[in-house]
């Protein structure tokens, strides 16, 4: 068992509280703002666990672009006023969610410790070890994540890029037509 540092604990509590607040607030605007804070907290968590690429994506897309798009959406639609600040908690649903979290939490003990050099994912000679040893000689880039994304798994990345493109063009066409009709 490794020790949990105060920084980690603060981040976890922050992310947990903002997640719960996002679900509980009745006002959509408040939910969106707190959701942005949750994304930012999550980005810091990723960066703390040495996954800066994921952290940057979460900060740019989750905290930045998503928030802007959601804000625009409520600016262009209606935002009903509420008297009470919080949603009424649906206790059966909360119980089921809690149970589910408990079941997931029970599997946590089977995981290797964070950053454990002997974890199966780190010692796989065909994947991680191969990339770490050969990525620079074969692709000439220092960031192994980029090497995996753009070279070793380039076909997957092409598929993802085309999905983003197709989704964007499809929404332009569909929403454009809906507005037009």
């Amino acid at each position: 068992m490794t020790m949990i540092t105060p920084l980690e604990l603060t981040l976890f509590v922050f992310v947990l509280i903002t997640a719960i607040m996002t679900a509980l607030f009745r006002d959509v605007l408040a939910s969106i703002v707190i959701f942005a804070a949750y994304s930012l907290g999550l980005a810091v968590v990723y960066t703390f666990y040495r996954a800066p690429d994921v952290g940057l994506t979460e900060a740019a897309i989750g905290a930045g672009i998503t928030t802007i798009l959601l804000l625009l959406t409520i600016a262009k639609t209606t935002r009903p006023r509420h008297d009470e600040t919080f949603e009424k908690i649906n206790w059966p649903a909360a119980g089921v969610c809690g149970l589910f979290a408990l079941v997931l939490g029970a599997t946590m003990f089977a995981f290797p410790a964070v950053g454990d050099p002997n974890a199966p994912a780190m010692t796989n000679p065909d994947v991680t070890v191969y990339y770490i040893e050969n990525a620079y000689q074969e692709t000439g880039v220092e960031n192994a994540v980029t090497a995996v994304l753009a070279a070793y798994r380039g076909f997957d990345t092409f598929g993802e890029a085309v999905v983003v493109f197709a989704a964007g063009v499809a929404s332009l066409i569909v929403l454009g037509r809906e507005v037009f009709a």
Partner: peptide, 23 residues
């Protein structure tokens, strides 16, 4: 391109007068 497109698309939202950009 896609992110800016989505932004401008949502910005023109349900405003029926603002459609000519998409037609």
């Amino acid at each position: 391109g896609v992110l800016m497109g989505l932004f401008f698309l949502l910005a023109s939202g349900y405003d029926p007068e603002a459609d000519s950009g998409h037609t």
